[in-house]
Write a protein that binds this DNA or RNA. Structure first.
Lengths: 133, 133, 133, 133
DNA sequence: GTGGTCTAGACCACA
DNA sequence: GTGGTCTAGACCACT
């Protein structure tokens, strides 16, 4: 599994896990329709509590990333969650803060955009292709 | 004061306050060398406890945004904090997550970059010019 | 626990506690990776408020002495904090004052160096050997 | 005047001033019997409150560094304060902490002693000779 | 049970 | 008046 948890981070474990799964989906490491490890399995692999994995799965289900089937466990949805107004507002507010912070510290618009572009490009090229790394 | 706290938010008040002050500095609402309200004053204005404001001020001091002068209280530093390796790593990791999330939801690279560019432009034009709002 | 607080001292409790923990680490009373008492536990043992202990733990975390693990609470880091320029400058300035003060009062260079050497030797011999006290 | 105050420091101004005067005496910048600027004068020069200078002078008088004459103001005593048990205890405890901190961070005994020796040498050579700098 | 957050009120040091 | 410290007690998030 590609999950790495930093137990000394300020960020809750369930949130670290959530973000890594989303990154995994974006990168194509987790393909649409793919089944995720069971709560028990993943918890053991990472060395965290089973409830923590469960919490993450449920949040991702709420967000529309996962479907949870009683028999087959969690799987990546075929259709990704949509962009609603709330998402845009949060994104805007978050970016506003990040950019303000970077701007104050002297990171130019060009540098920042280049960084974002690189990250996007890496995603687009990796899509469904992590086997060729 | 230009501070708005969302008491329903999951984000701690001191962190909301911290971010708004950073945004305020980036926008030029708070100018370099400018004195901030006293912890008591600001706490009263916002309707929160003075310790919460104090915590925010101290974090911003640690980060290099504020200086706490024994005579005049908190003020915006003349020199903004630098970009160090830790900052870049955090920024990268944060953006990686945000972009993964947006990418999954179908926001194109162009849309995302446009959004960032707009935010940057708004900052650059506002800098030192909040009088013309 | 080996902590002794002087409630009459001008030095804040959290700072006394911080120094004693650092001394404890240096002496080997607290080993790398060792778990510290919970804030509540230590606060009760010492007879101070848990927030005061919490403050000390957080400062030591910032300094790189402790890691706060979400599962196990505070523990001594495996890798000690580095010496950076800021540390050297503070050390120099502090020693400059201490030596000036001692020099004025007639403490000779030899006496002073001997004192430092003794303290160093005591640390080096105690390291990992507090069982033989 | 050779005084530099850092208004953003955590150390109280009166204590910064006190330490710099002691350093000044040790270096010979202030000679025994020499008259110090008046409280008013020094306060104005440094840009601090007159009470703050007054507090420093009084502490240094208590410590035995200064004599305060109603007519001539403060002057450096001909005889420096002695080393008493309290002084030694404080010195020891302070050094113990400083050395523990340095030791943890990997500063070797030799490095530390060299640093102290350098500071001592610089004092001894400067004694009464700052004019030849 | 752990630490994190927030509130509240007190007292003190500093300037 | 300023921030710094300490106490106290409550609630919450996380595991």
């Amino acid at each position: 599994m590609f999950i790495k948890i930093d137990f000394e981070s300020d960020m809750p474990i369930y949130e670290q896990l959530r973000r890594q799964i989303i990154k995994g989906i974006a990168k194509g490491d987790l393909e649409k329709g793919e089944q995720l490890p069971s709560v028990r399995q993943l918890a053991e692999d990472i060395g965290i509590n089973l409830h923590t994995v469960n919490k993450t799965y449920n949040i991702l289900k709420e967000e529309g990333y996962l479907a949870i089937d009683r028999r087959k466990g969690a799987m990546v949805k075929d259709i990704m969650p949509m962009v609603d107004e709330e998402y845009i507002n949060n994104l805007y507010s978050e970016l506003e803060y990040i950019i303000a912070n970077s701007y104050c510290r002297g990171i130019s618009k060009e540098e920042f955009l280049k960084l974002c572009e690189d990250i996007y490009d890496r995603l687009e090229n990796k899509q469904g292709g992590e086997k060729y790394d």
